[in-house]
């Protein structure tokens, strides 16, 4: 009688071990976090009473909460660039999801008041001239359902960022003002944190008026609807993503000037075509078809052509 186990028993044990390992390795739980359904949110000086929404979602198969430490999901906001396993001193705890409230999947949300963000730890909201990025963190441990599985760490793959920004961008600089027909083209440079520029303009007759606004990255913006021959002073402001407005740029002057395009020259030369005042270009073939069908009908009916 041999002391070696039968070959068939070894095969069964190996198969079971492989299955257990595969179940443990393949069944990973993922944690997803976002703030206001995005991964980056900017809040400004005037947003102290604003409430953000931190959403969480756990998804996995064949997993449950680990019975040991970190069985519950903790979500917090930190001033640091990395999260660690627990909220550090000065971090803001957003909420805790008890292990008993979810099995293999779960989702929910927590409110987060701007004034409770860790950037204000030791101070009060608002803070002047401050720009700070904060990370939203989450951490828990899960265990495979199958026996003998090890608890696994679960962290979000992407950490949402909340930026508190009460720092106005630097004042943009108008590099040139190009006169156009009833318009001025304003070329400028703006700091990299500027997302928007706004134009203000004034003639000698009145105060500054609000002009158009446009993307800061374009480097130029057109101010139209002006009168030719009138000198206007123009200046621009930059805005960052949080809505902070920069000081005014340098003021520059420009005078719109009449110019003539090709069709104006054509008409000045006595050209007969007037363009399209009433019927758009696309309607002309239809008008022709109508004319041809009416003509055919009148010819068949012996009417006047």
């Amino acid at each position: 009688m041999s002391l070696r186990p039968p070959i068939s028993s070894i095969r069964v044990a190996l198969c079971l071990a492989a299955l257990v390992t595969a179940a443990g390795a393949g069944a990973q739980t993922t944690l997803t976090l976002n703030v206001n359904n995005g991964t980056a949110v900017a809040v400004a000086k005037d947003d102290c009473t604003r409430t953000l929404t931190v959403n969480w979602a756990l998804a996995g198969t064949g997993q449950s909460g680990c019975s040991g430490d970190h069985a519950d999901l903790q979500i917090w906001v930190t001033n640091n660039t990395t999260c660690g396993l627990d909220p550090a001193s000065g971090d803001t705890l957003v909420g805790t999801v008890l292990q008993s409230t979810w099995t293999t999947t779960g989702s929910g949300s927590f409110p987060l008041t701007v004034s409770s963000l860790p950037v204000f730890a030791g101070g009060t909201c608002p803070l002047a001239d401050t720009q700070k990025d904060m990370k939203v963190c989450g951490y828990l441990k899960t265990a495979p359902v199958v026996l003998g599985g090890q608890c696994q760490e679960v962290k979000p793959a992407t950490l949402p960022t909340i930026t508190y920004d009460s720092q106005a961008p630097a004042a943009p600089v108008i590099t040139s003002v190009v006169p156009q027909d009833k318009a001025l083209l304003i070329n400028f440079t703006a700091s990299t944190d500027s997302t928007l520029v706004k134009v203000a303009y004034a003639s000698a007759l009145g105060p500054y008026n609000d002009g158009p606004s446009g993307p800061a990255a374009t480097g130029s913006i057109k101010l139209d609807g002006l009168d030719n021959g009138v000198t206007y002073a123009v200046l621009i402001y930059a805005e960052d993503v949080a809505g902070n407005q920069s000081p005014a740029s340098n003021a520059e002057a420009g005078t719109p000037v009449q110019s003539y395009g090709f069709f104006e020259k054509y008409q000045q030369a006595g050209g007969q075509t007037q363009g399209c005042a009433a019927a758009p270009a696309g309607a002309l073939p239809l008008l022709a078809l109508v004319w041809m069908s009416r003509r055919r009908r009148s010819m068949l009916g012996g009417g006047r052509s």
């Binding site: 156009q180 057109k222 007037q274 002309l284």
Partner: peptide
């Protein structure tokens, strides 16, 4: 043949002397 034409100045269609737009078609 039918040719659609339009004329612009800057980023806008030119205006005509009768207040229309410089766009049309010719057979």
């Amino acid at each position: 043949r039918y040719t659609i034409w339009w004329c612009s100045k800057g980023a806008s269609l030119e205006s005509t002397t009768d207040g229309g737009l410089a766009i049309g078609g010719r057979f």
